[in-house]
Amino acid sequence: MAGQSNDDLPLRTPLYERHVALGARMAPFAGYDMPIQYGKGILHEHLHTRASAGLFDVSHMGQALLVGPDHRTTAAALETLVPADIAGLGLGRQRYTQFLNEQGGILDDLMVSRGPDPADDGKLVLVVNAGCKEADYVHLDLNLPDGVKLERRDDKALLALQGPQAVAVLARYDEAATAMGFMTVASLTIGGIPVFVSRSGYTGEDGFEISVANSDAVALWDLLLSNPEVEPVGLGARDSLRLEAGLCLYGHDINQETSPVEAGLTWSIQKRRRTDGGFPGYRRIMRELAEGTLRQRVGIQPQGRAPAREGTEIMDMNGELIGEVTSGGFGPTAEGPIAMGYVARDFAGVGTDVQLSVRGKLLPASLVPLPFVAHRYKR
């Protein structure tokens, strides 16, 4: 990535100078100097994304290729590390999954795509979390069999265009964007710039993630921002959007101790993998699917206006500790404080009344369904 001068300074994405020019408040995040918010603030950026189209720089994420002789071989190699059905991933499709350890805990969560071109058979595109990517790449290098190799794509930037007007904006440059369904991928041309696009994102809204060469990232950013519907959005609103959407943040809502079953991610483990196994932590996961878990991720609606931040203790109505908040804050669209966390299974039912220990006071809350704001993906 551009802009690194020594090991003590954060990395910069190719769009760093654009963020500074736009007046962004920059801060270190996952080793990168990233925009937290721009001049109009997090609340405006959040609501603009819900109403129109927000443009995010997510180039800190890790992009890589797995390359093998054919899809069957490459998919089989990845399936030894993740619980998703990668062999059944069709051309032009994307799937969410997790790297698991031998105890069934989550090392990282990631997106896996198979390109639309049959000529690329044997290649899988991976997008992993910024804070985990170096460990993920080591994990892959140590565990991939002969004949399947990892290729880092540090030459690629990643932009996310999210919101109900995102498709209209992209379709101005390439009408093929309109035909894409949720969790599909395609090679498009945006203003003469070749890009690899997935119809997915981290906001709960319809939208796209756009992989582009570092050398073209600034031109693409400027082109997309030239559309009246599009405004830049920082990581602050990205977090409030994903929280309202009930989406997990690695290192907070999921980690090496958390299983996909506890986290409510069993939908990402397809039937064949539950039957055949062959991934780390299979015994624990199958036991939890059959018998239930000791704890469960839940949505939490605090009463009043005080937010419940990460680490807040969750008590039952008798004052006994039953869990902890893992993500919390103000939901602009939900119009109040919202949180996610884990509670003991016996207390995890929707509608359960609980108490939150906030600054030494027990505040009332209740458990509610996730997500807090309905997803609006293109189905």
Rank of each mutant, 00 (worst) to 15 (best):
88 G>D: 10
321 L>P: 04
285 I>N: 07
184 T>E: 14
204 G>M: 14
155 D>K: 12
80 T>D: 02
304 G>A: 07
147 G>Q: 07
349 G>I: 03
16 Y>Q: 06
329 G>Y: 11
283 R>L: 13
111 M>L: 15
189 T>H: 11
24 A>W: 09
284 R>A: 15
43 L>G: 13
206 D>C: 10
219 A>L: 03
334 A>N: 08
97 T>I: 05
120 D>A: 14
179 A>G: 15
69 P>G: 13
201 G>V: 09
301 Q>Y: 11
26 M>K: 02
279 F>D: 03
348 A>I: 09
64 A>G: 01
327 S>I: 05
345 R>A: 14
133 K>G: 01
58 V>E: 09
7 D>E: 11
375 H>S: 00
213 A>D: 15
356 L>Q: 05
226 S>M: 05
333 T>S: 12
260 P>D: 02
77 A>P: 11
255 N>L: 03
284 R>H: 09
25 R>I: 10
355 Q>D: 06
251 G>F: 12
236 G>H: 04
368 V>D: 00
265 L>T: 06
215 S>W: 00
319 G>W: 03
300 I>P: 11
181 G>M: 10
20 V>W: 12
213 A>F: 02
297 R>G: 09
100 L>I: 07
246 G>V: 07
321 L>W: 12
230 V>C: 01
277 G>S: 09
227 N>H: 14
229 E>I: 03
161 L>S: 07
101 N>K: 04
125 V>C: 01
28 P>N: 08
206 D>N: 13
223 L>C: 00
226 S>Y: 03
104 G>W: 08
46 H>I: 07
160 A>N: 02
266 T>A: 14
168 A>K: 15
284 R>Y: 04
57 D>R: 08
235 L>N: 06
250 Y>M: 13
95 R>M: 03
158 L>K: 12
68 G>P: 05
249 L>H: 05
19 H>Q: 11
359 R>M: 12
100 L>A: 01
209 E>I: 06
343 V>Q: 01
251 G>K: 05
329 G>E: 14
247 L>P: 11
18 R>Y: 02
7 D>G: 12
343 V>W: 02
19 H>L: 10
255 N>G: 15
364 P>G: 08
284 R>W: 05
262 E>F: 07
364 P>T: 12
310 E>H: 02
309 R>L: 12
6 N>M: 10
173 Y>I: 06
302 P>I: 13
333 T>G: 05
326 T>D: 08
164 P>H: 05
181 G>H: 13
187 S>C: 04
294 L>H: 06
57 D>Q: 14
305 R>I: 10
206 D>K: 07
371 P>L: 00
362 L>R: 15
69 P>V: 09
111 M>E: 06
378 K>I: 00
243 L>P: 09
287 R>A: 13
100 L>H: 01
364 P>C: 10
291 E>D: 11
121 D>R: 05
124 L>C: 06
242 R>S: 15
347 F>W: 04
110 L>A: 07
114 R>Y: 04
343 V>P: 02
63 Q>E: 14
291 E>K: 08
364 P>F: 13
130 A>P: 14
46 H>E: 07
209 E>D: 07
113 S>M: 11
215 S>M: 05
61 M>A: 09
274 R>E: 11
314 I>C: 03
238 R>N: 11
327 S>G: 06
208 F>M: 04
127 V>P: 00
350 V>G: 01
32 Y>F: 15
340 M>N: 02
194 P>D: 09
71 H>I: 00
41 G>L: 00
21 A>V: 00
104 G>N: 03
293 T>E: 11
212 V>H: 09
